Amino acid sequence: MALAIFALNDTLIDGNCASLWAQCMADMAWVDGESYLAREHELMDLYLRDALALEDYLKFSLSSLVGRTAEEVAFVVEPFVEDVIEPLFHSDAIRCLANHRATGDRILLISASAHFLVSAIAARLGISDVLAIDLEERHGSYSGHTEGELPYREGKLTRLQAWLEEHTETLDGASFYSASHNDLALLSQVSRPHVVNPDASLQEHAKQAKWPILSWR
């Protein structure tokens, strides 16, 4: 049995769960729809082009949750995952997960998105092991801040190493599937790196490294 690690955005799903959640909040009137979505789109575009730090995107996006309880958010996240996210699961991703389960591999989902989103999506996929961005709560409500190391770039590897120690696991024979060049640090550490629908930077690196390049639809 080995570890099968999966990124989420543009890997298991066709899209980015944070941006899709922003649209959901606009639909529920939790945010000023037009102006909020315009700003979210602008910041996400900058982030994806490496022109904005993840922390700066989070400062904006998490401000919309200040004062809301985890229970309040969870109540609307479940139908959001069912109605919006589930239709975006790549069929090839579902087959890949099934193949790893058939061989007895342990599956871990790791993402630089908010834990309340990632864990709800993971539950829909039958995945119990999740690493994501942990959100701070104060006086029973979200504060708009994060807690601990962000699972982003080298931080994703740091969080994974801590998880491995906690669960007495290793990267021996491990696989990792990702679409983003931000995951190069982790892709370089596993025995079986796989790039899925890669961005341009990751695709070029994968070609040079002779990593498998998968097209999931």
Rank of each mutant, 00 (worst) to 15 (best):
L3N: 04
L3Y: 03
I5F: 02
A7T: 14
D10R: 15
T11A: 04
D14A: 03
D14E: 03
N16R: 14
C17I: 09
A22Q: 11
A26W: 10
D27L: 14
W30R: 13
D32L: 01
S35F: 11
S35M: 06
L37G: 09
H41P: 05
E42Q: 07
L43Q: 04
D50C: 10
D50Q: 05
D50I: 07
A51T: 14
L52H: 01
D56V: 11
Y57G: 01
K59V: 06
K59Q: 11
S61T: 00
V66E: 14
T69R: 12
A70I: 05
V73S: 06
V73H: 07
A74V: 07
V76R: 02
E78M: 10
P79T: 04
P79N: 03
P79K: 09
F80V: 04
E86L: 12
F89C: 08
S91K: 15
S91N: 13
S91L: 12
A93C: 04
A93H: 09
I94W: 08
I94C: 10
C96L: 11
L97V: 02
L97Y: 03
N99V: 14
H100C: 08
A102P: 01
D105P: 09
R106S: 08
S111C: 02
S113W: 01
F116V: 02
S119V: 14
S119P: 02
S119G: 09
I121H: 06
A122I: 01
A123K: 10
G126Q: 06
I127W: 00
D134H: 07
G140T: 10
Y142P: 00
G144P: 02
T146L: 13
T146P: 08
G148V: 05
L150V: 12
L150M: 08
Y152C: 10
Y152T: 09
Y152G: 10
E154C: 03
G155W: 11
K156G: 09
Q161R: 15
T168C: 14
E169G: 02
T170C: 07
G173Y: 08
A174G: 10
F176E: 09
Y177P: 07
S178F: 03
A179Q: 09
S180F: 01
S180A: 02
H181E: 09
H181S: 15
N182A: 10
D183Q: 03
L187P: 04
S188H: 02
V190W: 09
R192E: 11
P193L: 12
H194A: 10
V196P: 04
D199E: 15
S201M: 13
L202Y: 12
Q203K: 05
Q203V: 04
K207N: 15
Q208P: 07
Q208A: 12
A209Q: 13
K210D: 15
W211N: 05
P212H: 15
W216V: 02
R217V: 13
